[in-house]
Amino acid sequence: MPDLVKVENLVKYFPVAAGNVHAVDDVSFAIKEGETLGLVGESGCGKSTTGRLLIRLIEATSGRILYRGRDIASMDKKELHGIRKQVQIIFQDPFSSLDPRKSIGETIGKPLEIFGMGSKREREEMVDALMEKVGLSPRLYYKYPHELDGGRRQRVGIARALSLSPDFIVCDEPVSALDVSIQAQILNLLQELQEKMKLTYLFVSHDLSVVKHISNRIAVMYLGKIVESAPSLELFKNTLHPYSQALLAAVPIPKLDRKREKFILTGGVPSPINPPPGCRFHTRCPWKMDVCSAEEPPLIDVGGEHLVACHKVKGS
């Protein structure tokens, strides 16, 4: 499968009084058509910023975002408007991402209206079809967001994202605000829709078990950098970067006999305003060597599409 999205040397700095927040710092990756790339990391690692940059909700400081070979980052308003049909986003919080004064039907139909698709009557029919697709009862058409629970609201967000039949959807923590039983329903819905509509996802999440479940490939971010990326199974079987290992070991598992060994990191994430020199993880890394604080490790290929940025790991 060809690459649908290709990101090259993406950088985003947010200027603040104390300097620049290095939110995303030289990140490159590609997403193949029809696959799900999971972007995982802890708060402040830059995963959501990356998602928003990709569909240009915020402007990149530098770097290229190629969508089917065309650079989204340098498009003018008119070109961008054309692309908006094909790239969509589902937000984390189903409460703040819906307009409280718009009915569910209006919200889902808004993108259709903006792009002047069909007559009013036809749009209503399209909205009905979309609601059915995401498992919302048509009697909710005239309801308002506050009358719906979190799971249904998230379905509205999904229906809105699907309304223009996009190819690519950024899912920004789409299940984090939901209860586990509802979370599972939404995950299954997203997978079902992907198969039916040949969608490509960038799935941003802090939850490793969710990311593993839904992704074909996973990229792990730490302080604005991708430290490791690999096909999903490979990443879990052969975890190379010490940060990925710590992240995996930290996940509490509802089982009596866990296979993984305990491995608890000390300290917290350093400030992204003055990220540590060399490898950004060296301040917390239990295997730190002298070179780690001096030189930034490059992202090297260890074979089988498995990339890792760590001085301890030698390339193939």
Binding site: D149, V180, S181, I182, A184, N188, L208, V210, H213, I253
Partner: peptide, 23 residues
């Protein structure tokens, strides 16, 4: 049902089976 909702991080394949309906 709650146990089946959580993707298993230690197994190669994980099936999740949501609890249907709502609270």
């Amino acid at each position: 049902g709650l146990f089946r909702c959580i993707p298993d991080i230690e197994e190669e394949t994980s099936l999740i089976q949501p609890i249907e309906g709502l609270m």
